[in-house]
Design a protein around this nucleic acid. Structure first.
Lengths: 147, 147
DNA sequence: ATACAATATAAACCTAACTTTAGGTCAAGA
DNA sequence: TCTTGACCTAAAGTTAGGTTTATATTGTAT
């Protein structure tokens, strides 16, 4: 299958200018062109783009993604490097998920905090420190206030 | 408790210049100063910074974090806004965790792929498309290759 | 008293990852 | 043929979130 840049943009929700930018910086070295110089994307290019999206999600920089693709083209001598890259990225991603889960806990706490405040129509007057900290809802504080 | 900017930087692993930058853009409106104009951080400032770190982790921009702090100071009239903010951020964060988990799946796949390649000393010659896609390891392909 | 480490400011600089702009080319339907 | 929408490039501009630099002041140990 062959796709125009506009079709790829639609399919993967990546803007046309971003696709051209990726091509320019060398992230899509395999993209074919028509005689009239129009880009023609094939399934391999699509897979490249999906991999770029995947690695970008985990925080990898474009220059490092490019390096990985270069390693792929260098052949078997870079297998170890590629293995290490993914092991490292796996650990980073797991850490990132943990960070996000912790943040989500705090955010859930605030959701509950403000849900209660909405019900009562006011924030308990304990000052900004208490409002920002996680102390308020979690201990006997809340029970005594509820009376 | 009172802390110098250097102590806070150590405690929270935020660089001194970043702390000054946060202060400059109005994220720390409550920081006291000595007579000699030296910043003195208290527990409330620390809680602010922890909240900034939390929200930043979930991808919120500094200008929106600032807005939230301004709402806090405006009082009860902004409770609903603050509630909605956190509900929205909760959803965004949950989506982000899902994205990361999907990416982690792909990455785990590549770890296994390259672990096997390391063992054999070579990448099966199926071309870049197969190497990048998730097809290779997951189906009977691998069983037939293993024989 | 003096030296030196920590702090202060303002302003310039930096980086990644795009996006926009300007000026052109290509391709398909009427 | 003409028009129109999709495509092309190069180069400049943008944005967020800092960092660096230059210069000055503060505060503490000897």
């Amino acid at each position: 299958m062959a796709y125009s840049i506009g079709e790829v943009s639609e399919m993967l929700s990546i803007s046309i200018s971003t696709l051209r930018y990726y091509d320019k910086v060398g992230l899509l070295p395999l993209v074919n062109r028509t005689e009239g110089n129009i880009r023609v994307f094939n399934q391999t290019d699509i897979e490249c783009l999906k991999m770029i999206e995947c690695l970008k999600t985990t925080g990898m920089q474009l220059k490092d993604i490019k390096l990985f693709f270069e390693w792929c083209e260098e052949g078997d001598s870079t297998i170890e490097k590629r293995y290490n890259l993914f092991i490292e990225q796996k650990e980073k991603t797991e850490q990132q998920i943990e960070l996000l889960k912790n943040a989500l806990n705090r955010i859930n706490y605030k959701c509950e905090y403000y849900r209660m405040a909405k019900e009562k129509g006011s924030i308990p007057d304990l000052g900004l420190r208490e409002e920002l900290s996680m102390k308020y809802l979690s201990n006997e504080n809340i029970r005594s206030k509820r009376v």
